[in-house]
Design a protein around this nucleic acid. Structure first.
Length: 587
RNA sequence: GUCCCCGUGGCGCAAUGGAUAGCGUGCCGGCCUCCGAAGCCGUUGGUGUGGGUUCGAAUCCCACCGGGGACACCA
């Protein structure tokens, strides 16, 4: 917001350094990190250290000398109130009235677009969610879904063209097992409602039967080879039952407000994958050990001439010639770039256990000479576990089903709404409960560093207080409530009193940082940056709310504060939108 | 055995290599005759260990300790 002034001062600094025979420096601005101090700063430590060359010297003292020299040598640009040298830093303090007006005006004129960056003309793809058909959808699957969704929203806001891709696992051993169980024991049955739960239960049943009687494995293998020969009964049954899962998934995505531009199916890549493997064999990249009873493999370390093991060996096709995940991933990666040749980055939002798998796949593609191979990137995240570090596994039955969590969270939220706001219509109460319940589920998944395991427990998941989505939603509702009472068009832009309170300053400061935080989140692929920002905004607003009366304030303070409330409301709404969390008008 | 990730108050988490390490929760105490108490204020308490790099380290490097994960036909 002060680019011109920043560059102006940077030029002045460069000039000063030149006339004083000091080394050049790259002026980088940062926010002054203290509460109640408002402005930007740059430090001179690096410069001071370099100015000594090989000699020793007191860097801190020198840095401060330079800062002081600069501070006294440059004149203050408009919009600032003070320039000072502090402990080796040059601090430029904003003129509060000017600055706050600038920020508030900008937010109000940009509206829903506030915080977004200019279009970059660059396209990226996020592949995420990858649910397995014929299986349950549980809380462990939520992290990829939410992470991918929020990363997509952030990248879009930062100015990228984003392709959201889903890659359902619609074929594999799990599906074959399911089909076996269905054809043998449930032929002709159809799910009435709660489709995903029914599909998951059937899968668990299949596993139980196979565990109790391992002799049945032969029947499962028979189904697999019938599938491979495209036996019409198997193929048709697969098509029909797969559709049931997909219908269930679509319902869930709709509820979670997650959209996809493109569906790639696992099953689409069996044949193309095998063709690519055949080519790899022809070109001497893959070794075909099938004649000796082995599989088709790529000895990555050997091909790269590495002495120590790093990429190891990847199996790209089974010894019985069926496709496995790696086979399909080769073809999928290629397909993405055939569909979108200008893709700058192809992200795979998949859990951390598959890190090696993806480095192997991408390396294989690189060795094969695909120039886009280095544009593929695995975005890994840690698991969602149950207390005691128990992994959620549909086979073990240690899962919390998504539909159960949603039902529980919304009914719990409904209870609270009834208690807090009995005057709302029943319909509004239900809507609020859904917004609050879903927000509460989502927030913890995107407000934690991806590298950290999330432990799911009901108590925490259903706790709506503190650093959680409902807190942010509540701040939004309060802002909205003030504006509703005000009930008139916003006042004209106004230069507020210079005596802004610290809570007003803190709030405006956070709002002003929003565009930078969004860019940072997109660059670092860190949704947590945005969820933190949303929370900080809400906190700052709640603080302001407690300290600064709005409607009963004297003019012109009243008008300035009303505009600030509107700006804060907009900023909170925009940050919630980036998280895919609904901002209710009342709650 | 090799490789990857994590270690910050009792618990759960933040912190572009930068100035005074922030929050939530829990415990205790306070605040609704001013706009919504799903809120606010106050109190308590912390960077696993040992080296190194740097003007400056929770952050980078090395070793160790503790926890989790991946390592040829699962997805």
């Amino acid at each position: 917001m002060f680019e011109k002034e920043q560059n102006f001062i940077a030029d002045k600094i460069t000039q000063y350094l030149k006339t004083n025979n000091l080394p050049e420096m790259d002026v980088r601005w940062a926010w002054i990190p203290f509460n109640g101090q408002w402005g930007i700063s740059t430090s001179f430590f690096q410069l001071a250290a370099r100015s000594f060359g090989a000699e020793k010297g007191n860097v801190a003292q020198k840095a401060n000398e330079i800062a002081q020299g600069v501070a006294s040598a440059i004149e203050m640009p408009a919009g600032f109130s003070k320039i000072a040298a502090v402990n080796g830093y040059l601090n430029l303090y904003f003129s509060p009235a000017d600055y706050s007006r600038r920020v508030v005006d900008e937010v109000l004129s940009a509206g829903d677009d506030y915080g977004k960056g200019q279009p970059l003309g660059k396209r990226v793809m996020f592949e995420f969610s990858q649910p397995n058909t014929h299986k349950a959808f549980h809380v462990g699957h939520l992290r990829s879904a939410f992470l991918g969704d929020v990363l997509s929203r952030i990248a879009e806001a930062a100015g990228y063209d984003v392709v959201r891709a889903n890659y359902p696992g619609d074929m594999g051993l799990h599906v074959i097992k399911w089909l076996w169980n269905y054809l043998k024991y449930h032929k002709g049955e159809k799910p009435e409602k709660d489709i995903t739960r029914w599909m998951g239960a059937m899968y668990a049943e299949a596993n139980k039967r196979l565990e109790e009687n391992p002799d049945l494995d032969a029947e499962v293998r028979a189904i697999y080879s019938r599938w491979d020969k495209k036996d019409p009964e198997i193929v048709n049954c697969w098509k029909e039952t797969r559709e049931w899962s997909l219908i269930g998934f679509k319902e869930m995505y709709e509820k979670l407000d997650i959209k996809f531009d493109r569906y790639y199916f696992n099953s689409m890549f069996e044949e193309p994958g095998k063709e690519m493997v055949a080519e790899l064999i022809n070109r001497g990249i893959a070794d075909d050990e099938r004649p000796q009873g082995g599989a088709v493999i790529v000895k990555l370390d050997e091909k790269l001439g590495l002495k120590e093991e790093k990429f190891r060996v990847i199996v790209v096709q089974r010894s019985d010639s069926t496709a496995l995940y790696a086979t399909e991933d080769l073809a999928l990666a290629r397909q993405k770039f055939l569909d979108y040749p200008d893709l700058e980055r192809s992200y795979y939002v998949v859990d951390v256990r598959q890190s090696l798998h993806f480095t192997q796949v991408f390396k294989t593609l690189e060795i094969a000479g695909f120039d886009w191979a280095t544009r593929c990137q695995h975005v890994s995240y840690e698991l969602v576990n149950l207390p005691g570090n128990v992994v959620m596994a549909s086979r073990e039955g240690t899962v919390v089903l998504l539909e159960d969590l949603i039902r529980e969270a919304t009914s719990r939220a409904l209870e609270v709404v009834r208690e807090k706001n009995p005057d709302l219509s029943e319909e509004s109460k239900l809507k609020v409960a859904e917004a609050v319940g879903l927000g509460a589920i989502k927030y913890p998944m995107v407000s934690r560093d991806s590298g950290k395991i999330v432990t799911f427990d009901w108590e925490t998941a259903l706790d709506f207080n503190g650093q959680a989505a409902p807190y942010i939603q509540y701040a939004y509702v309060r802002a909205n409530s003030i504006l509703k009472k005000y009930n008139a068009p916003l006042p004209e832009s106004i230069l507020p009193d210079d005596q802004l309170s610290t809570s007003e300053i803190a709030l405006i400061d956070l709002i002003a940082r929003m565009p930078g935080e969004i860019q940072k989140a997109a660059k670092e692929l860190k949704p947590l940056t945005v969820s933190n920002m949303a929370y900080e905004l809400a906190k700052a607003f709640n603080d302001f709310y407690g300290q600064c009366p709005v409607l009963i304030a004297e003019e012109p303070v009243r008008s300035a504060r009303i505009r600030l409330v509107a700006a804060a409301k907009q900023a909170i709404a925009n940050s919630l939108a980036l998280l895919g969390i609904t901002a209710p008008q009342a709650m």
